[in-house]
Simulated assay, not measured.
Amino acid sequence: MYYAVIFTSIRTETEEGYAEMAEKMEQLAKQQPGFIGVESARNEIGITVSYWESLEAIKNWKMNLDHLEAQQKGRSTWYKNYKVRIAKVEREYEF
Results as ranks from 00 to 15, higher is better:
Gln27Gly: 06
Leu65Ser: 15
Ser40Ile: 05
Ile47Trp: 04
Phe35Cys: 04
Val38Thr: 03
Glu23Gln: 00
Ile6Ser: 11
Glu44Pro: 06
Phe35Trp: 06
Ser9Gln: 10
Thr77Tyr: 12
Glu53Gln: 09
Lys24Leu: 13
Glu44Gln: 15
Gly37Arg: 03
Arg85Val: 11
Lys80Ile: 11
Ile58Ala: 02
Ile86Cys: 01
Glu26Phe: 05
Lys59His: 12
Glu53Trp: 00
Phe35Met: 03
Arg91Cys: 14
Arg11Glu: 13
Arg75Val: 05
Ala70Ser: 12
Glu15Pro: 00
Asn43Ile: 11
Lys80Trp: 07
Asn43Met: 12
Ile47Phe: 00
Lys59Thr: 07
Ala87Pro: 05
Glu16Ala: 09
Ala4Asn: 10
Ile86Asp: 00
Glu15Gly: 02
His67Asn: 14
Ile36Phe: 03
Lys88Leu: 13
Gln27Trp: 08
His67Phe: 04
Phe7Ala: 01
Pro33Asp: 06
Ile45Met: 06
Ser50Glu: 09
Asn60Thr: 14
Ser40Pro: 03
Glu39His: 04
Gly17Leu: 11
Arg75Trp: 12
Trp52Arg: 05
Ala4Val: 11
Val5Cys: 09
Asp66Ser: 07
Glu16Cys: 09
Ala29Arg: 01
Trp78Asp: 04
Ala70Cys: 06
Ser50Asn: 08
Ala19Val: 11
Val49Met: 13
Met21Arg: 11
Lys24Gly: 01
Ile58Val: 12
Leu65Trp: 09
Met63Asn: 12
Ala22Phe: 08
Glu69Pro: 01
Trp61Leu: 01
Tyr3Phe: 15
Gln72Ser: 10
Thr12Asn: 15
Glu56Val: 13
Met1Ser: 10
Glu15Trp: 06
Pro33Lys: 01
Ile10Ser: 11
Glu92Trp: 10
Arg11Pro: 07
Glu23Gly: 01
Ile36Ala: 08
Gln27Glu: 14
Leu55Ser: 08
Trp52Cys: 04
Ser50Cys: 09
Glu16Ser: 08
Tyr82Lys: 03
Gly74Thr: 00
Ile58Tyr: 07
Ala22Val: 10
Tyr2Thr: 13
Thr8Ser: 12
Phe7Val: 00
Val89Asp: 13
Ala4Thr: 13
Trp61Gly: 02
Leu28Ile: 02
Arg42Phe: 11
Lys73Trp: 01
Val38His: 02
Glu94Cys: 08
Glu53Thr: 07
Gln27Thr: 11
Arg11Asn: 13
Glu53Asp: 10
Ser9Ile: 07
Val49Glu: 06
Gln71Arg: 12
Ala57His: 09
Trp61Arg: 00
Trp52Leu: 06
Ser54Lys: 00
Thr48Asp: 05
Gln27Tyr: 09
Gly17Asn: 11
Met63Lys: 05
Val38Pro: 01
Glu13Phe: 08
Ala19Leu: 14
Met63Tyr: 08
Ile10Glu: 15
Lys88Val: 10
Leu28Met: 07
Asn43Cys: 10
Tyr82Thr: 05
Asn43Lys: 15
Leu68Cys: 12
Gln31Val: 11
Lys59Met: 04
Leu28Thr: 02
Asn81Leu: 14
Glu94Met: 05
Ile47Met: 02
